[in-house]
Each structure stands twice: as structure tokens, then as C-alpha cells.
Simulated scan of single mutants.
Amino acid sequence: MKYNLFVLLLLTVSIGLRAQNQTSKSTVETKTIHSEILNADRAYTIYLPKDYANNPQKKYPILYILHGLSGVNTTWFEKYDVREVQDQLVASGESTEMIIVSPNAGGDPKTEWNGYFDMPGWNYEQFFYQEFVPHIESTYRVIGNKQNRAIAGLSMGGGGSTSYGQRHADMYSSVYAMSALMAMPNSSTPPKADDKFSLLSQSVVKNSCVDYVINATDQQKEELKSVKWFVDCGDDDFLLDSNIDFFRAMRKANIPVEFRIRDGAHDALYWHSALYYCLPFVSRNFKQ
């Protein structure tokens, strides 16, 4: 009889601990927002810290993380393991608990709009700042100030996050750019109205991150200094030269920036490894 009671007690405790562990795991959700600006539904994928559901009074810093060309909102989570890396870094004390969200700004470039800038037929930047950010920060428990907001991205998203940080410096404490599309040479051929990829290319030319620094006014340079910058690019990456150009422009303008050239190429392995630098970097620059 005593043995049976002991076994029952162990089972009860085990079930309770298992339930507690399940409710204390981080969660990843994919949701949809309707955009009046884009006249379309746009998906996003969001990571919520493990105690989000159990601590309803707590608000969190937020990282907006942008995917690359042909990527979508789930790419950071399904290909580069942002949830697993963040959980690991939080457990080791190297990263702080935060909300991480990735909006959809892409898909197959032959058929879908790609890009984080406004262009004919695709006013994505207006959507991002007028609809997406307000939706996220009113729907979820986000602290919602410059000191606790960061942005990062890879390739097309690396250029997008850098340009957003430049032109919206009042919103971000830090920017982490991976293998970033910092600039493109201007084409002598004007973009066609029905060619989504050529319109994207022209928008990158127009929003060159390198030219922004070179042409920045004294006031804009001071604004850039209010952001912590980190540029991370592989030594075999075809975008390395434009990342070096950006670093040189920032250095000439006396704007502090951390710059790393690591072993690697323009690929998933590199971006996965970059998270181990990115997440601690943005964590250090949050000021709760």
C-alpha cells in the first residue's frame, strides 16, 4: 500500500513538472495582418520568451529581424534556428529575454514582391512603420522605446535593417547587419513597371547605405551616433566589398561601428553562426 502511494506521488510530481516545463518553453507563432497600404494580407512570425504567458505584467525589448531575397517570415526560424539559438543564449546568460519578430517582405522574386523600401506598387516601408510596428507593439507586450528596440537582417534584409536604422535612428538602440546588401551600381536601363526585380534593384540604388553616410549632414551624423552598429560579413561573400565601403564611410564620418570579417560565404551556415554574435550584441545595447 505504501509503495503504491509512493509511486502515485512520483507520477503526480512528474506530471506537474512536465506541465510546468511545457508552459515555460518559448513559443513561435505565425500570424497575419491586413495592410491597407499594400492592399494585401502580410504574414509575420514571432518568438515569445518562455515566461511570456506566465508573467502577464512583464514587457519585453524587441528585435525586428529581416529575411533576405526570396526568403519569407518563417525563414529565420525554419532555416537559421533563431528560436533554438535564443533559448540557448538566454539559458547561458549571454542574451536577454526579448520578443523577436520577422515580417514577410518576399517570396519567389519571379512572381512576388521583394524588398523593404517603397517602390511603384509596393510601399513596404510605409506599411512597416505605419501599420506593422504599431500592430506588433500594441498586440504584444513590447516596451516600445528606442532603448529597447533593435533591428537586424541578412543580405537584402541586412541592407534594409541598415537603411531603416539610418533613416529612423530615433527608433533603434542597435542595428546588426549580416552579409548586407549595402549598395548597388545604378543601371543605365530604367526599371519596367511590371518587373518586380528591377524595381527592387532600383530601390536599393536609391537607398544606398554607403551613399547615405557619405552625404550625411552633421545632424544626420549625430543621429547615426545614437545607434550602436555591427556589420558582419564573410570573407568569401560576394557582398564583402560593399560592406567594406560602408565601414570606410562610417569610419571617415567618425561614426563608431563594429566590423567583423569572419570565415564564410553568403549562406545559411554563416547566418546561423551570426546569431551567436547578433543576439548578445542587441541584448547588451538594450536599456530596460
Rank of each mutant, 00 (worst) to 15 (best):
L5D: 13
L5Y: 06
L8N: 14
L10Y: 03
L11S: 13
L11K: 13
S14C: 12
G16C: 05
R18A: 10
S26Q: 08
S26C: 13
T30W: 06
K31N: 03
T32M: 06
H34P: 07
N39I: 05
R42S: 04
I46A: 05
Y47K: 02
L48M: 11
P49V: 01
K50Y: 01
K50N: 14
D51F: 01
Y52V: 00
Q57K: 08
K58G: 10
K59E: 05
K59I: 01
P61M: 03
I62C: 13
I65N: 00
I65E: 04
H67K: 02
L69P: 10
L69F: 11
S70P: 10
S70E: 09
G71W: 00
G71S: 05
G71F: 00
T74K: 13
T75V: 04
W76R: 10
K79V: 02
V82Q: 05
E84I: 00
D87Y: 00
Q88M: 12
Q88I: 01
A91H: 05
S95Y: 04
T96R: 12
T96W: 02
S102P: 09
S102E: 06
G106W: 09
G107I: 06
K110Q: 06
K110A: 02
K110P: 04
W113E: 15
G115L: 02
G115V: 05
F117H: 15
F117E: 15
F117W: 07
F117N: 15
G121M: 07
F127Q: 13
Y129N: 13
Q130P: 11
E131S: 07
E131R: 12
E131D: 05
F132S: 14
I136T: 15
Y140W: 03
R141K: 03
I143Q: 12
N148Y: 00
A150S: 15
I151M: 06
L154V: 00
L154W: 00
S155K: 06
G159E: 12
G159K: 10
S161C: 03
T162F: 01
Y164Q: 15
G165S: 15
Q166L: 02
H168E: 13
M171S: 14
V175N: 14
A177V: 04
L181K: 12
M182E: 09
A183S: 09
M184P: 11
M184R: 14
S187W: 00
P190Q: 09
D194Q: 02
D195P: 11
S198Q: 14
L200Y: 00
L200T: 03
S201E: 08
Q202S: 15
Q202G: 11
V205R: 13
V205Y: 01
C209D: 15
V210E: 06
V213L: 14
V213T: 14
V213E: 15
A216W: 03
Q220E: 10
K221G: 07
K221C: 03
K221A: 07
E222S: 12
L224S: 12
S226I: 00
F230D: 02
F230G: 03
V231A: 12
V231D: 13
D232P: 10
D237E: 03
D237Q: 05
F238P: 14
L239R: 13
I244M: 07
F246M: 09
R251M: 05
A253K: 08
P256Y: 02
R260D: 10
R260K: 08
I261P: 07
R262G: 08
G264V: 04
L269A: 09
W271F: 01
W271R: 14
W271T: 12
A274N: 10
Y277G: 13
C278T: 08
S283F: 03
N285M: 01
N285W: 03
F286W: 06
Q288V: 01
